[in-house]
């Protein structure tokens, strides 16, 4: 029993980390197609902002809001100055955002210094079945789910969501119908930066906050987002993080951390290979296959009865 609880905890933990570290990117890359290599740096800005807010004497929650504001502001600024000019040439956004990531992380080092104090972690420990678990990590799980649900609602039920989806699928048509697509792009990019900054600030409760703090998250976030696919990015993100975290946790528990990491990457490769449009289509294909199989077995059994 203890083992099962422990596994469930690790699985949820791993899911939350994957989902939170990629949720900003799923907006920027998944919706807009911008290859944002500076994703991790937006997370870093969120963490730095939160650390500063806290040092200024703000309560922790407001400090985190400070971090989100910082990331959003820099995100919006970059969208206006740089990203906006790249919407027609998305592969080049890789080079430009790589440049931005160098400027941001090294700029933080020069202007602020090699590190800033971490944030205090107000959460305690909870004991289940004789094992101690971190409430902070459970909070991350709840947060990841809450954010995914909120995003889904935003896309599904609001005007912004409608316009955003229209802009991403048929920009010219949307424009013709009166959607101000440039504004939609800007808000979307800002939202992505805000979410990245939020994740960074939250991770800053339990990490050393340094200029290179975010760099490690960028490739992993890309993998989660590519596996999530382009059909329905929010549901895709949920499925992608759930599946990758399951593989990672299973192999980590069964073998070791390295095997877990490599198994996750290999799974991502397999999923992309089987279904370039993402995990949802793979699930769809598998379902179709299963029902085909079911109907064909049903068919043979019917024939058998007939023959009998």
């Amino acid at each position: 029993m203890g083992d099962i609880i422990s596994f469930a905890y690790q699985y949820a933990d791993s899911f939350a980390l994957l989902a939170l570290s990629s949720i900003g990117l799923v907006i920027i890359f998944g919706m807009m197609g911008v290859i944002n290599m500076a994703h991790g740096e937006f997370m870093m800005i969120g963490a730095f902002g939160a650390s500063f807010g806290f040092q200024w004497g703000l309560p922790l929650s407001l400090a985190i809001v400070t971090g989100v504001f910082a990331a959003t502001a820099i995100g919006l600024l970059l969208e206006r100055l740089v990203i906006r000019k790249l919407y027609g040439r998305l592969l080049y956004s890789l080079v430009a955002t790589w440049g931005i990531s160098l400027v941001l992380s090294q700029g933080a080092l020069v202007l602020i210094g090699p590190s800033v104090p971490s944030l205090p972690n107000p959460f305690g420990t909870v004991s289940v079945g004789g094992m101690n678990f971190s409430v902070y990590r459970l909070f991350l799980v709840a947060l990841a789910i809450a954010l995914i649900v909120t995003l889904w609602a935003l896309m599904r039920f609001t005007n912004f969501g409608l316009h955003a989806r229209a802009t991403m699928t048929e920009p010219d048509m949307a424009e013709a119908l009166g959607v101000r697509t440039t504004r939609i792009y800007m808000v979307t990019f800002g939202l992505g930066a805000a979410l990245a900054g939020f994740a960074g600030a939250i991770f800053g409760l339990s990490a050393q906050i340094q200029p290179t703090f975010g760099a490690a998250y960028t490739p992993i976030a890309f993998i989660v987002v590519v596996v999530a696919g382009s059909r329905n990015i929010i549901a895709g993100l949920l499925a992608s993080a759930l599946v990758l975290a399951l593989v990672k946790t299973s192999f980590t528990v069964g073998f070791n951390i390295l095997t877990g990491y490599v198994a996750m990457l290999v799974t991502a490769l397999i999923i992309i290979r089987l279904s370039p449009t993402g995990i949802l289509d793979l699930i769809g294909k598998l379902k179709a296959l299963a029902s085909q199989h079911r109907s064909s077995t049903a068919g043979t059994s019917a024939e058998e009865t007939k023959n009998a």
Partner: peptide, 12 residues
């Protein structure tokens, strides 16, 4: 320490 900043800005 400005090397990477200049390099990044040039790329952009």
């Amino acid at each position: 320490e400005w090397a990477l900043i200049v390099q990044g800005a040039l790329l952009v």
